[in-house]
Design a protein around this nucleic acid. Structure first.
Lengths: 233, 233
DNA sequence: ACAAAAGTGTTACACTTACACCCATGT
DNA sequence: ACATGGGTGTAAGTGTAACACTTTTGT
């Protein structure tokens, strides 16, 4: 079997786009940017960066994430590459897509607005330039599958959260309702939650405060080591 | 957000490698090629093809599969892209990997030998050139996950097969044993198998013949349409 | 005292697992 | 008749799903 590249084969450029998910407390949000400069000035796009021929894709995404969120240690996973010829007018570009989960916070939101990015509910993402619609749809599917098997709440929820919040997260992510009692039984049986002893009132109208929980990271490490095939829902 | 490519960015080449799985009846096999020409002449590699700048990756893989197996309509799925800089001495090459399931047959085996390819038990794959070890390991993980959720037997098994054969397939694929009675109950409950009425003797020594079954493709279509989240094992 | 959301148990049913012998057939 | 692999059932335990009321707290 022969694999002989000719100089003419080295005529492709690389880019990476990242689908970033966050949870507001009652909605699943995703990050959308707008394109500066022609072509497609002002079009909605996914946060995207060029991968120069001497760069490793993962490093480029991480630096993009650092730029957007101030950190690059969020859970990050490669999706498919989108590589149909001539998807980009400037020449042949292969887009190596990633998806990423972040923990929302107020200063995170502020820094993003400054960079021309916005958080949009996943139920309301606009149509985008290039083939970013396809990338977004693909990421959504991947995310749904991950939610069922991995405790995504570790990243998506604030450090302390209520059982109602985590239930709402799962309902948003999977697009269906759960029975409150069954949900709590299941999530508590996993032994991954620790009651912090703190409470919070979920709204001004709410009288009784909710108990706050946090994840037991040590227990999670132990469980993932012996095969992370934990089914959640 | 700016995305401006310069001519210097168009200096990457694309290749695709495919991990092909087949089932011999008592072993899971995978397809390995050998490299012709320097560098790495004679090294073990995955079946690989160059993607010219005007070609769609999926078409290239399909034509590679047609070349190897005479058909290109096997279940095919993109894996990650392997794109670390300088993984190939000729310059920067991005490898878009795929994995594929085929139904083994005698003439398929013959045509492959002619092309310098060999079927190797997955438990005995040798170390390979480039980063093909990494690709292979990644494919193996993906395959294990798929086996648990999708009826891979549709493709991997002959049109008619015995319950012992399908059990052996699952045991190979997942690397563990199943209880014969429980396995049969489960696989028959799925309603995806039809008894053909035919029988076969599994070996010369076997006296009693085994019953043959086939998959009910129509029922499978129906089930997949309403969410293919069928858990097998 | 009342409004609001938080929190809690039980029962029926389905699925999973462990386990050992008889059956059909060819020689 | 016997050797060989093919084929079968049951019972205990575990997990899932459906269901509605009481508790706590702030106003």
């Amino acid at each position: 079997m022969k694999i002989d590249f000719t100089p003419a084969d080295f005529n492709v450029a690389l880019a990476t786009s990242v689908v970033v998910y966050g949870f507001s407390g009652d909605e699943l949000l995703t990050l959308i940017a707008q394109k500066d400069g022609e072509p497609f000035h002002g079009a909605h796009i996914l946060p995207t960066a060029i991968i120069r021929p001497d760069q490793a894709p993962e490093n480029v995404v991480k630096s993009l994430l650092r730029d957007l969120t101030g950190r690059d240690d969020w859970p990050l996973e490669q999706l498919n590459s989108f590589a149909n010829p001539y998807r980009n007018p400037s020449g042949r570009v292969v887009n190596i897509a990633y998806y990423c989960l972040v923990r929302l916070s107020d200063d995170l939101k502020a820094s993003l607005e400054a960079r021309g990015c916005r958080w949009i509910p996943v139920t309301k993402v606009p149509s985008m330039a290039y083939d970013h619609d396809e990338v977004m749809a693909y990421a959504r599917e991947r995310f749904k599958r991950r939610v069922k098997r991995r405790p995504v709440g570790f990243t998506l929820l604030p450090r302390e959260f209520t059982l109602n919040e985590i239930q709402r997260l799962y309902e948003c992510a999977l697009g269906r309702k759960f029975d409150k009692r069954n949900f709590r039984r299941k999530v508590l049986k996993s032994q991954l939650l620790i009651e912090t002893g703190n409470t919070v009132r979920s709204s001004a109208k709410a009288k009784r405060p909710s108990r706050l929980y946090m994840f037991d990271e040590k227990k999670y490490q132990t469980l993932t080591l012996k095969g992370y095939d934990i089914v959640y829902f």
